[in-house]
Design a protein around this nucleic acid. Structure first.
Lengths: 248, 248
DNA sequence: CGGTTCATTGATTCGCGTCAATGCAGGTGG
DNA sequence: CCACCTGCATTGACGCGAATCAATGAACCG
């Protein structure tokens, strides 16, 4: 992955990286992103409004309440989206990885904050220009509506998890969710990278660090997973993990 | 509200109600629904594919896993959308009222079940025909994308509630949510109708009936609300309720 | 090499769930 | 009209699962 030492905060003010046309034509995750809705010369229309930016780990892309002037595609790396309460309680509403789109749900202002977890590469679009493209490229809007639908379904699953599942069911569901994601991309799903910390997982699953840690220990003891390092999980018993996740 | 004694289950097989063109032109909530995206003769295109159906309380519109062949607009009444776990645990993902749209997030099958809470009137659209209209009426798709964005933002708020808020914060947030909804429609928001049961509220807020009931009692004792009947709430101290909801 | 961050584990606490009982309102049938 | 039933809301007593508080050790880093 690229070096990032030189980039100043905030990301939104970083200088453009390169001539506009290059990145999209050569993008190696294009067919997995919203840009897949486009063909041939249409790609160039996108390329004219996009900026590809490397972002080091731990940077804030934007904060809840900021003017929502850009949307993003994740090309490489990982982000967390989250909301904060006045007293500091945090709810992570999603982890994003390569090919994910940030900013479907936009009013005038962002409804959540976004930070990089690892060094990442993002494509940034001025929101107005993207929306102006809808008239010209209706397939783009259809693709976004489809993406929004998928996110809504995921959000409903997460509500079930947060409202009704036990700690061990939450962690098992989380691991299975990551597994399915890998497999949907044609990768083997039994070895999972966990770029986020235990605290991040807790804030995503409605638990504390300690409970997440204890739950990993329990799943390990029960022979369902192994953790070669704290940031890697191998699933040993997929069916067993499924049973745990569904409470059966 | 209409009489419903004659209607058989399932709703989806109920006979068409009336000649197609009438209902949309005369619809008195049209400008608050997705149909507001349409003008003049466009309304007639919608009217050609819609069926307006009265549904009594307690009916199932569709179940999680059913073939997702229709989408719905709520004209009058109230519904609950929910997911079930194998052992019967239930998470209500949303309450719907007049002007709400059901079915934005659709794959091949419904991701949740839908039931009427009170006697209701719904508009039913064959999904394929609605999607076919997108090409002809692009404003419709734009409106749906906007609606999906609003739902996503609401879902993220609900994740914060379920993952990080205490019982009293959840109930207070719920009441404020209903208040804002009323006010967004130009109605006074301090008197709220609660068509759903305490159990429904619990299953929406990730609590038990008993905890919901005790929390209402506490809010009453603290002078923040009164409950003329179990299905009506009057907010006495809006600012106080806001402070409770945000944990400050 | 001291300092920071992170993961893990143990001891204890506490908020909410579970279990149980009561009362009220509405519906039904005799 | 009344006896009975059912569903719902409320309240109390008690228990448990996860949070809180606290300590330790490993990895990383300037």
């Amino acid at each position: 992955m690229a070096r990032f030492d030189i980039l100043p905060q905030p990301v939104a003010h970083v200088a453009e990286q390169q001539p506009a046309l290059m990145p999209c034509a050569a993008c190696d995750v294009r067919e997995l992103t919203i840009c897949d809705a486009l063909r041939g010369r249409e790609i160039d229309r996108m390329a004219q409004i996009v900026t590809r930016i490397p972002v080091p780990a731990g940077r804030t892309l934007f904060q809840e309440g900021d003017e929502a002037d850009h949307v993003y595609n994740i090309i490489d790396g990982s982000l967390r989206l989250f909301k904060l309460m006045p007293d500091g309680r945090r709810q992570i509403t999603g982890f994003l990885f390569a090919t994910d789109f940030v900013g479907i749900a936009l009013k005038k202002r962002y409804a959540y904050s976004a930070e990089t977890i690892t060094d990442s590469v993002i494509c940034r679009f001025p929101r107005e220009k993207l929306e102006a493209l809808f008239a010209e490229l209706p397939a783009l809007e259809t693709r976004l509506l489809e993406t929004a639908g998928n996110e809504l379904i995921a959000a409903q699953d997460q509500m079930l998890l947060l409202g009704r599942k036990t700690a061990v069911e939450r962690v098992a569901s989380f691991l299975l969710h990551l597994t399915r994601r890998l497999e949907a991309r044609g990768l083997k799903g039994n070895k999972i990278a966990l770029p986020m910390t235990r605290t991040d997982m807790g804030d995503y699953l409605g638990l504390t660090v300690e409970t997440v840690s204890r739950t990993f220990t329990k799943l390990r003891r029960d022979g369902l997973i192994t953790t070669p390092t704290p940031h890697e999980v191998e699933i040993c018993d997929l069916d067993g993990l499924r049973e745990v996740a569904e409470g059966s």
